[in-house]
Amino acid sequence: MTKWTGVFPAVTTKLTLDGKVDIEQTKASIDRLVKSGVSGIIVLPMLGENASMNMDEREAVIRAAVDVVDGRVPVLSGLAEITLENAKKNAKLYESFGAQGLMVFPSLGYKTDNRETVAWYKGIASASSLPIMIYNNPIAYGVDCTVDVLKDLVDVPEIVCIKEETGDIRRVTDMYVAFGDRFSIFCGVDDLIVESSALGVTGWVSGMTNVWPVECVELFKLCAEDRYAEARALYRILTPSFHLDTHVKLVQYIKLAESLVYGAPEWTRAPRLPLVGAERDFVVSTIKHAISALAARNKKAA
């Protein structure tokens, strides 16, 4: 059975100023992530503006990611659809494009009840041979894969991982009590990673790793090695920026942060617009404060 562990950034899709997919910039950012020590990548997540991409664009992004990664780490694709028919069809397509796993959203068009949620994930699991990470974010999507729901999915071998993003830190332990190590459990929100690691998560789907991959990999490693005093010190530097990962405008925020830190394009696709005014100033100030604090930390360590 597939066992994913480590830091899996939810990769932003780089765009040009006029909204076209910039494949070369996307490949460059993915290569930077892999060279920085991440354990896997996830293209076309919500952060990657999945829902705004047509199928030709999605194919180009997946194939480009597989090409640049070149087997160094697993390449997963987000799968975000409204109907089960489309979800099953696209699961097969993404497999044919070279994806090695799927991060599967609930239906984007309807808040399924528990029975419907089970049928949704079972149906998608039956459509391809790819291992599946369940994207569990009831705050954003109104559907919760609770322990009771997972009890009806525990015998589906393709479902191997849960991205836990309920915001309720108790859920991590509840899943371990119910299922042992049947599922890999990933923290799905940046500003809960140290707390989640203390409870035993095996991985982290991270937005801000796009910005600071070396530091985020280090943070995860410190926690995995029970070096929590050092982890807390780094976490306190990064947490104000990590809070940006939980905002409705996380795409704009993280892309702006990438631009500030290493020059990546910040452009998004409408209806998302570039940040302006006090909101932009707040994000810039937050990121620049972290840049300065990290530089001071590195100087002290040198």
Rank of each mutant, 00 (worst) to 15 (best):
F105S: 10
F105G: 01
F105R: 03
P106C: 08
L108N: 11
L108S: 07
G109S: 10
K111C: 11
K111L: 07
D113E: 14
N114M: 08
N114D: 14
E116K: 10
T117P: 01
V118N: 03
A119S: 15
W120F: 02
K122H: 09
I124R: 00
I124S: 00
S128E: 06
I132H: 01
Y135D: 01
N137C: 07
N137V: 08
I139A: 12
I139Y: 10
I139L: 09
Y141P: 07
G142Y: 12
V143K: 03
C145W: 05
T146R: 08
D148C: 01
V149I: 12
L150D: 04
L150G: 05
L150Y: 08
K151V: 08
D152S: 12
V154L: 05
V154E: 15
V154H: 08
V156W: 01
V156K: 01
E158I: 02
C161W: 00
K163I: 07
E164N: 09
T166W: 11
G167S: 06
D168K: 15
I169W: 15
I169K: 14
R171H: 09
V177W: 08
A178H: 10
A178V: 06
G180Y: 13
D181E: 13
R182E: 00
F183S: 03
S184L: 02
S184Q: 15
I185D: 01
F186S: 04
F186D: 03
C187E: 10
D191Y: 12
V194Y: 04
E195H: 11
S196Y: 11
S196G: 06
S197C: 10
L199I: 00
G200E: 12
V201R: 06
G203A: 00
W204N: 09
V205F: 13
V205C: 06
S206C: 05
S206K: 09
M208E: 08
T209P: 00
T209K: 08
W212D: 02
W212K: 04
V214Q: 13
C216V: 09
C216D: 08
E218A: 00
E218K: 09
E218H: 05
L219P: 06
K221W: 02
K221R: 15
K221G: 00
L222K: 02
C223Y: 04
A224S: 14
E225C: 02
R227H: 08
Y228C: 01
E230R: 10
A231Q: 11
A231C: 11
A231F: 13
R232T: 13
R232E: 11
A233T: 15
L234K: 10
Y235H: 13
